[in-house]
Amino acid sequence: MSSRPSFYITRLENWVDLPSSLGTLGAQILAGGTDLVPNLTWELASPTMLVDVMGISELREITIDAEGRWVIGAAVTLSDILHHPVLGAHYPMLVAAVHAVATPEIRAQATLGGNLCVDTRCRFRNQPPIWRSGLDPCFKSDGNRCYAAPKSRECVAILSSDTAPVLIALGAEVAVGGPELRWVEVEALYSGDGHDHLTLGPQEFVRAVRLPRVSPAGVFRKWRDRATMDFPEVDVAVAATLDEGVPRDIRIVVSAVGPAPVRISAAEVLLDSSPWTDAQLERASVMAREAVHPYDNGQLGVIGRQLAVRSLVLDALTALRAALMETGGEQNDLGGRDSREKGQPR
């Protein structure tokens, strides 16, 4: 029997009751539990009450709102998304990311909201208790040091959500439930501090994810040790919409290199204003590598992950360019905003 700390489980059937339950000291949401239960077993979490939300039917629905946008409840399982008859055809990049999460058994249990909120990880913390007993507590364990980044003043543990970068690239929004409902961009869900990595208030929770009515073209790439099961060492999601042959709304997101996904704004601006030549895609990938600073807290080392960022961004952008050209680009290289505005051939 594990030395898992004791807690109560409260099962809810109406989300209206959720804020007050979460207001209880030491309360935490239990959805699929695929991340939480291992953390309990390894004594990495010590809630006094778990609020089981899997009985709340509103959180388990995939619907289309009045404006034709898909809304996925936070407690919809990842395998429900994979098995949905229509969703995959509209949002192939989301399905690719969901399919890249863990294993079939875990996807049958894990939820979309849980994947977005999954606790940050670090190789100096996500270890059995006896392993950790040799180290003084780090920031994430309420201590005052970071083993991965000794000069850091805050926790740099990694966000391992595969769906987060994709939903950011898609421009999806999250319904944050609580005393008041608010809609935020997925990007705004993350604080950047690995210790307390979500911006949710104490009584707030992720209620649903709303996808844009029309999905931009997108490509997702995940780099990990093994081809299955593993958490990401680097995730990359890129997306763009073709407007009269010119890519617009370009989003380049790199994740699993820190406590929050990173938008590579400089590369987005570059590709918004210039043709998508091989050289420009290469420049964008270098910008991505320079914009992220992974620490030695994953499984595959700092240099490897830096190189992977560049390689994955280049690969993803090249694939995105091919996809865009298939749907409407006319020439070998897609034109940027400048070329169109100046009347140059694309």
Binding site: R11, L30, T34, V37, P38, E105, A108, Q109
Partner: peptide, 18 residues
């Protein structure tokens, strides 16, 4: 791994109450 209602699941990360 066991089946829960016919679906393959991991019993070590499934709380019995659920």
């Amino acid at each position: 791994t066991v089946w829960i209602d016919g679906v393959s699941r991991l019993s070590c990360i499934t709380l019995a109450r659920t």
